[in-house]
Design a protein around this nucleic acid. Structure first.
Lengths: 213, 213
DNA sequence: CCGTTTATGGACCCAGCGGTCCATAAAAAC
DNA sequence: GTTTTTATGGACCGCTGGGTCCATAAACGG
């Protein structure tokens, strides 16, 4: 061992992430990254490799976080499964308003920019979507057991619809759609799960965990 | 008048559009455009202005087309309103598969890249989303009159949910989600409109008009 | 205290960027 | 045929891009 790093790896990684979230891959220059991190080129390259490696690392970490977040948010007993889905939708709404989060979801942004020309990125995005879908489907099965969702409905189909609605909220939120409109989508999505009969259990159970885009 | 242009404006505009759809704004270089169009820099600048003007013109034309398409697709009598919505969803599915259309919807791509830093782009995107929503809502009202959708449901809320599901299909299609999965979303979205009772009229009425992303 | 090893950040490289300019070509006006 | 006007496309410019290199700094082992 010799001279140690003068910076905190995770702090710098967060600064890099903030920059990529704001300006994507192509529009982020190395000088953006040196400014955002306060490091020189040499340090940045020494610690994280080139721009592409930095980006892939950031994107993978983001996808993992997105998944960890839904895992934590949807975890719980059958009786509050629907309430947790509703709370998750509320979180998506809150995080998708352009006012609060002008740059939108990094997963969506990166898929839009790179999926067509980078199979690795596309695959990671697809894996993440499928993982989200799976978690949602599990919660729907729980809610079916609890009597909040029609037990004869196909949970996989409902889960995909719910996920699509969430991605739609994100997609349109970036353009400046109001929180009221986005919230209406979230409410309607939950309504689509419960059907005309409505839920058996209360949706307003306190099941919020934490927020993340 | 003197020497006339040697190229067809609309053909060249289409070539420009193909390039922007493929590589977005930042990642499209002028040399990309000269290659795509076969024109020299001078001609391109003379006829269309600089890169930013070319892009804005292309984006605006695209938004208009998206709206014209839904207008044409959803036009018709009450009895087939739901079938037309279903056909529209099928078109979105077909156009959103990465296999057929790797670059995705230009509206989504541009919103993801630029809405956060360009209010004019954001506003145009928002206007387009709202216009789509309005047309969908109108068709839903028609379907309610025809007895295919519960007349007590709020058409605005249902329309936003439907639109969000469509944008979700587009968003996830780019990552390579299968046509079957995307189609399942479309079917579930129509199901969410009709509710548990199902539609009164047949969904398979021949109401397809033309295709567009 | 000195040699070794690694971190540091700015100098440097050159390829490609967006944009301008201009000599030339070509059609219209007369 | 001559003049006028516009289109054309490549030469050219200043600048910034990503990436490398290296003199220097700083901590450790002995």
């Amino acid at each position: 061992m010799a001279r140690p790093r003068e910076f905190d790896q995770t702090e710098v990684a967060q600064a890099i992430r903030r920059q990529f979230v704001a300006t994507g891959f192509a529009s982020t220059s190395i000088s953006h990254l040196t400014m955002a991190t306060g490091l020189g080129k040499g340090s940045l390259y020494g610690a994280f490799g080139d721009k592409e490696q930095m980006f892939r690392r950031t994107f993978n970490a983001y996808c993992e976080e997105v998944f960890d977040d839904i895992l934590e948010q949807l975890d719980g007993p059958d009786e509050t499964a629907l309430a947790r889905l509703s709370a998750y939708a509320d979180i998506i709404v809150a995080d998708s308003s352009a006012e609060k989060n002008p740059h939108g979801c990094f997963l969506a942004k990166t898929t839009a920019e790179l999926a067509a020309i980078d199979p690795e990125i596309a695959q990671r995005a697809l894996d993440t979507f499928r993982a989200l879908d799976e978690q949602i489907a599990e919660s729907i099965v729980q809610a079916q057991r609890a009597g909040d969702i029609d037990a004869t409905a196909d949970p996989r189909s409902l889960a995909l619809l719910f996920l699509a609605a969430m991605r739609g909220i994100e997609s349109m939120g970036k353009s400046g759609m109001t929180t009221e409109e986005l919230q209406s989508i979230a409410t309607a999505a939950i309504g689509a799960l419960t059907g005309a009969s409505g839920p058996r259990h209360n949706l307003s159970d306190r099941v919020w965990k934490r927020r993340r885009l």
